[in-house]
Design a protein around this nucleic acid. Structure first.
Lengths: 204, 204
DNA sequence: CAACTTTCTAGACAGTGTCTAGTGTCTCCG
DNA sequence: CGGAGACACTAGACACTGTCTAGAAAGTTG
């Protein structure tokens, strides 16, 4: 444990952990495999046993990020006491994550990462599923599928956009939260929202 | 002109043009100053006279991108025949730009670019100003400043988010346009929208 | 205990951004 | 007209990167 054994033991986990810290602090561009290896006390070629590519490491980070965001969204969904409450909680959880982990968020949604591996696409899909499920569960009558999807997409866009405005420094975090609150309120009170909700505004 | 004179003459312009092509085709990460220099037929150190940094080149590209987007938004605003029409045209112009120049868009809104130079921040500011002005011009009575800003931010968020969903391949371009259309309609018919419009729904 | 697989080392290669010193070219002012 | 200074560029160097290779060490399995 003290002097390095030949086998590091959990190099993969250490690399992921340190890599995420670097991304968070200095951005994905600043991530260097060799620097990571040095910090972990292994040779510069060692990471290759666990990540064939630099991009493979970034992909793994993105998957981890999506999974963590998914978990937070799930928690927000559970904590919601009404449909509207759940709605606002989801939005805030999403924006909060985007603000706290802005660099990671940028990585997760960068073109080279998002489209690269099925694993990343799947993780992103699971995240969006939670968003969609949370909406579907709200209405007593199953929502019209088309309306439901449109509704979910507009919601996703608003939240994603608010997050982008915040992370790029265009608006403050408080403004970002107010944006999603406003957007959520508008959505719920719109015609489309009414149809999705099946005529009720406070389903449980 | 045929054989390269010592002074290239318009190296800066050529570099910008080729750099934008590279970003568009292969992403910002794939941009190499040395490769650019080779293509332009100059030595690897030549670009330094025009762009002190790799980042400086990227910043210049971002400024160019913001300016072009600003121009398109202006055109959309002029073409609009009613407030609602103008609204939809702006949204579609924004999403259209984001789709056609996805990689450039990603560069423009990346953290390292957005926050780096005043020049970039200014260019981004001008773009958002056009968005904001277009909204302010719509209402006959000057909108309540606070409501107007909230309105504009929600709009910007929706549009930006829809663009992000499209550029990351999550939804198709058609879906993206429907999202912004839906969002625009909801916004216009919301309480907040009504207040901003001063009670009218079709101001000219 | 032997075969096999995984994990790591160490060296090499091509490529990069950045810095520096020096040179060719242009412009402008006396 | 000519010289001086500003500018654009060249060429070489440096430290660094990701990736590939061959091979050694350690763990695993039969």
């Amino acid at each position: 444990m003290t002097s390095q054994p030949f086998h590091h033991g959990n190099l993969r986990a250490v690399l992921l952990e340190r890599a995420e810290a670097v991304v968070r602090e200095r951005g994905a561009d600043a991530l260097s495999l060799r620097e990571l290896a040095r910090e972990a006390g292994v040779s510069h070629g060692a990471p290759r046993s666990h990540f064939i590519d630099r991009q493979a490491l970034l992909d793994a980070l993105a998957v981890q990020g999506f999974d963590r965001l998914t978990e937070r969204l799930r928690a927000a969904r559970e904590a919601g006491r009404s449909f509207e409450d759940r709605f606002h909680r989801l939005a805030r959880a999403y924006v909060g994550f985007a603000v706290d982990d802005a660099a990671l968020m940028e990585l997760m949604f960068s073109m080279k990462t998002t489209g690269s591996t099925p694993a990343v696409a799947d993780a992103a899909g699971r995240m969006f599923d939670v968003l969609g499920d949370a909406l579907a569960k709200g209405s007593t009558t199953p929502p019209h599928p088309v309306d439901g999807e449109r509704f979910g997409l507009v919601f996703a866009a608003a939240v994603q956009g608010a997050a982008a405005l915040v992370t790029t420094g265009r608006v403050s975090r408080e403004q970002g939260e107010r944006i999603v609150d406003d957007a959520a309120s508008m959505l719920l009170r719109s015609e489309l929202g009414a149809r999705v909700l099946g005529g009720r505004s406070d389903a449980r």
